[in-house]
Simulated scan of single mutants.
Amino acid sequence: MRKVKITEAYCVELGDVVDIDRAHEESMRGGAPYKRFEFLCSDPRCREKGVKIIGVNYDKPISQQQNAMHFRENHEYKHHPDCEWVIMHNYLSHPSPHPGETERLAVIRQQTYNTVSDWITTYTPYEPDTGVRTESSSVTVLGSNTVNPSSQSQNKIHTGSHGRTTHSFQKICQYHYELAKALPNLNDLKEIPLHVTGLGDTNFYKYFRLIKYALILGNEEHEYDCILFGQLSNNNGIKKYGTGFRVKFWAKINELAVTIYISPEQIREYRHRNALLDILNNHEKFESLTAYFIPKPNIVTEYKFDSGGKEIQITISDLNFFRLIGTPKKT
Rank of each mutant, 00 (worst) to 15 (best):
S288G: 07
C226P: 03
L276M: 14
S117D: 10
I172R: 02
G100L: 03
K212C: 11
S151Q: 14
Q231P: 12
P125L: 05
K5T: 09
H158N: 13
A23E: 00
N145Q: 13
I54M: 02
V247E: 05
G163E: 00
E178H: 00
T115Y: 09
T165N: 06
E103I: 12
E26P: 06
R268T: 15
E25N: 14
T140F: 14
Q313W: 03
N185I: 10
N145M: 09
E191A: 06
K296Y: 10
W85A: 02
Q152N: 14
L232C: 04
I172M: 03
Q174N: 13
Y207V: 04
T197I: 13
A257E: 15
K3D: 15
I299S: 11
F293C: 06
R29A: 14
H272E: 15
V141A: 09
N235L: 12
G55K: 01
H79D: 07
F39M: 05
L199Y: 14
F39S: 01
V258H: 01
H24M: 06
D16S: 12
D129P: 07
A291N: 01
E13R: 11
G55A: 14
N74K: 10
E127V: 14
W119P: 02
K239M: 07
T7L: 10
R72F: 05
H70N: 04
R133C: 08
Y126E: 13
G198E: 05
K252F: 04
E220Y: 12
H158K: 12
L105W: 03
E220R: 14
G242I: 04
Y303R: 13
Y175A: 07
I120L: 11
V4K: 06
Y213F: 15
A180G: 05
E101I: 09
N187L: 11
E76R: 12
F322V: 07
L277R: 06
N145S: 14
D16R: 04
L186C: 09
R47A: 08
F39Q: 03
I120H: 01
Q266Y: 08
E8T: 08
R133A: 02
M1A: 10
P297C: 08
Y303T: 13
C83N: 08
E269A: 15
E255Q: 11
D188P: 13
E73G: 07
V56W: 07
N145W: 05
A106N: 13
Q66E: 12
L217M: 10
R271W: 05
Y224N: 11
W85S: 06
V4W: 00
D225V: 04
L217K: 06
